[in-house]
Amino acid sequence: MDFEFIYENIPLYMEAAKLTISIAAWGILGSIIIGLLCSMIKELRIPVLRNIVQFYIELSRNTPLLIQLFFLYFGLPKVGILLSSEACAITGLTFLGGSYMAEAFRAGIDNVAQSQRESSYSLGMTRQQTFIHIILPQAVATAMPAFIANVIFLIKETSVFSVVALADLMYVAKDLIGISYKTDEALLMLVVAYLVILLPISVIGSWIERRVRYAGFGNRSAVSGD
């Protein structure tokens, strides 16, 4: 193991890690927004839009990210839309993550007791008001474990971005191997880099999960003996 080589190349990995993190952060933010929009459209049963949402979710969940990126990077220019590597990566990740987030929120929404809706409606609140003030806050709490799993999943998915010529961690590692033939060192650093990014998220994630579980609201046991 060439530790000097490892030491020399740490800055290179740091740069790549920064890029990976920033693309992932934007992509995840986009996913959350798309996910919320989709779950809202489904909850409010908006005609036509909900069919489009359903189609999008099936399309996005049943095709690999790699293929989605190919389509964005090599397909779209053919119809005159040229996206930069970064834009491709963020769009691709959002396209994939949006459906996963939508499904996670959906599960959380379904878990909110129907009687919560009725109790809100009976106070004269509209469907929208009920969704925003009553359903969503409770749904987010129950969706938290799935949400955090999705965040980690999406960060890992960034490892395919090198195919759109983005100098992320995977790209740098492959590059180093090509130049120096120091495969073991380059791959070790790659693994360590992903661990350094993901472990803290995982730890913070389970801390948040515990928090919201203890907050738990006692929702399920609203009716004693039910």
Binding site: E118, S119, G124, M125, H133
Partner: peptide, 28 residues
Amino acid sequence: SKIREKIGMVFQSYDLFPHMTIWKNILL
């Protein structure tokens, strides 16, 4: 919604909003 505003209802399972304090529950 406008009509339900004028008809108050209380349920068997209370159905308070679990994520809000009592104060927020009644003032919402």
